[in-house]
Design a protein around this nucleic acid. Structure first.
Lengths: 125, 125
DNA sequence: TAATTAACGCGACAAAGTCGCATTATAGTA
DNA sequence: TACTATAATGCGACTTTGTCGCGTTAATTA
């Protein structure tokens, strides 16, 4: 199952690089000019997550957002940071502060998903 | 707009009390014996959230979970705690640890949503 | 007991995401 | 360069989660 390089994959990747923040599926689709199929973009993003190229954030609107894994190696992902979703401009960005949460004994964490929503500096009236 | 007490409302409330943990819509529906309409239960839960009776958690499966607001007054909700969703038994429970996250200047937080998924003590193989 | 209107049930709908399948095109090899 | 295996695509159908409108029912108040 070796990965191949396709126009759609390249386009999605550069859309994410260009944005710098986390993007939702439909925003990515728009950014690449709706040149590709919905399902294709979903599959690309899922592959990116599987390969450790992006990480997936599920925001409090129930939607998935995707962001490039910066500063985390492919072996040890460190995604225990928060994301901020602006209710005004709908942008999702990473917050720098790392957080450690204690779990009860015998519990094993698999995924960390922290989102704070509100209004960013630009959208704050 | 004064609230009325109806059988469905009472049933949903006692289902949440009985559970002690956060429940998804469909689990609540099952717990009340599918006696009420889907939309009705959704409306009841939304009303509960509006009235500060429950709080809404959006887990990393993209689904909403509802839990009774315990220990937070109606005026000042303190929901800046994490929830744990077990990938084995699908239970969602509150974690005790409170968390404070620093936001960039000019940012205003409206909602806190922290979920850690993994395996609980019972489901850990 | 009657009137007001919150809440309900039903049905249709929307959005997000997945899946199967036939087709296309990428990467490795002869 | 041509051939082949198969990863990836596009299309369509589908599921799940959640919402909304509307006519009807039933909880409150007088």
């Amino acid at each position: 199952m070796k990965r191949r390089s396709t126009p759609s994959k390249t386009a999605v990747l550069s859309a994410l690089e260009q944005a710098g923040t986390a993007l939702s599926h439909d925003k990515i689709l728009t950014k690449v000019g709706d040149r590709f199929d919905r399902a294709t973009v979903y599959r690309i993003l899922n592959r990116f997550c599987d390969d450790g190229i992006t990480h997936r954030i599920v925001a409090d609107d129930g939607k998935q957002y995707f962001a490039l894994c910066e500063g985390c190696s492919h072996e040890a992902h460190a995604h225990n940071h928060f994301h901020f979703r602006c209710l005004g401009c709908d942008a999702v960005e990473c917050l720098s502060s790392e957080v450690t949460v204690g779990l009860p004994a015998g519990y094993r964490a698999e995924n960390f998903n922290g989102v704070i929503s509100g209004y960013c500096a630009g959208c704050e009236a």
